[in-house]
Simulated scan of single mutants.
Amino acid sequence: MQRIIKGEQVIDESWHLLPKEVTLEELSNCDDLLVPLQLWREHAHALKARDGGLGIWLDADEAVEEIADDLQYFQVVALNFPVFTDGRHYSSARLLRERYGYKGEIRAIGDVLRDQLFYMRRCGFDAFAVRPDRDPYDALQGLKDFSVTYQAGVDDPLPLFRRRQG
């Protein structure tokens, strides 16, 4: 069983990340599922009627604007980083939190490394599935890499100079 970082602790993963090739007939009715965007596009009505938890995952070339009107149906939005150098989903997480007001879990999946976690959290991520070849307990320490931030972020909307003016 994979372990993820959530709430600043390492926990057992309970959601099933489905591959892009999955069909509706293959799905369990009661498991907690992270479905690919294409499956949601084709079968949203049937997926909403399931008994289990529902989440969605987006690849780096898929925009959060496509699911903006449906966010109330998802407990988790997972954003895939195909390679650690692809930072497009940092913006996606900020859009989900700041423009669309999404309060559910935003999870980083894919090529997720310790060095990224602190910055991902600042953009709105609150769960992280680090690469399988990496230790999640070591990666957890990445959330504590810095004690002070200068810029505004989702986690602290005021830049440092505004925080010090009080």
Rank of each mutant, 00 (worst) to 15 (best):
V154L: 12
R163K: 07
D145G: 08
R99Y: 05
V148I: 09
Y90D: 07
D31N: 13
P132S: 14
A78L: 05
Y102G: 01
E8K: 15
A68K: 09
D32W: 09
A129M: 14
E8N: 15
V35D: 04
Q2L: 07
I109W: 01
D115K: 02
L113K: 05
R41E: 10
P82M: 04
S14V: 07
E21W: 09
P82C: 03
V64M: 05
P36V: 06
D133K: 09
I4E: 06
D12K: 13
M1Q: 07
K6M: 14
E13T: 01
D133Y: 04
D126L: 13
D156T: 14
M1N: 12
S92G: 11
G166S: 13
I11A: 09
V77C: 06
Q2W: 08
Q38R: 06
D155C: 09
K20T: 03
R107G: 00
G142P: 00
G104D: 06
F161I: 03
F84P: 10
G104W: 11
L117T: 03
F146Q: 14
R3A: 12
Y119K: 04
Q151G: 06
I109Q: 00
Y150L: 15
E105V: 15
V76D: 08
A44C: 02
Y73V: 02
V148D: 02
R88K: 05
A49L: 05
H43D: 04
I56Y: 05
R99V: 05
R107V: 01
Q2R: 15
D86H: 07
D70K: 04
L140I: 12
R88M: 04
R122W: 11
Y90L: 08
E25M: 06
H43G: 02
Y102I: 00
I5N: 14
R122H: 10
M120R: 12
V10F: 14
D59N: 01
D51K: 09
L96A: 08
R114F: 09
D135F: 03
A127N: 13
Q151S: 05
R131E: 10
E98S: 13
T85L: 02
G87D: 11
R41H: 14
P159D: 14
E62F: 00
G52I: 10
D138A: 00
R94Y: 00
V77E: 03
G101S: 03
G87S: 11
L39K: 00
M1K: 10
W15E: 12
G110Q: 00
F84W: 10
S28P: 10
D86V: 14
G7F: 10
A63E: 15
G87L: 12
T149I: 15
D155S: 13
W40S: 01
K48R: 01
L96F: 05
Y100A: 13
R3I: 03
D138I: 08
A108M: 09
K6P: 05
V64C: 13
P82A: 03
V148W: 06
D32I: 10
G153V: 12
E62T: 04
Y90F: 10
L95S: 07
